[in-house]
Amino acid sequence: MADETRSQGPSEGRPAAAGRGGPGGPRRGKRQYFRKKKVCRFCADRVDFIDYKKADMLQGFIQERGKILPRRMTGTCSRHQRWLMVAIKRARNIAMLPFATEF
């Protein structure tokens, strides 16, 4: 059902609807803006271990309010994001990073 409507879309002269095809969208539509592909910073640096003691490095992966930045923002790969999460949580435990900013 859904497939039918989508295939009909372009023929009816609605290119905008065709472009909005979920995650596979950018390849289909022509009017897509191109974003530079983000590369995992840890993979580029060949990091095998994320140290929770480097608080200033981890600071770059949390929001102002203290939340961990999602992968889609930083471009970190899933494995490194997992390690990063552990490191940030450890750093929080020893008061090097905030759980949530006060005030």
């Binding site: 203290g66 929080r92 008061a95 090097m96 990073l97 905030p98 759980f99 006060e102």
Partner: peptide, 8 residues
């Protein structure tokens, strides 16, 4: 001495 991220 370092600043703590939250009050302890």
């Amino acid at each position: 001495t370092r600043k703590l991220a939250y009050r302890v």
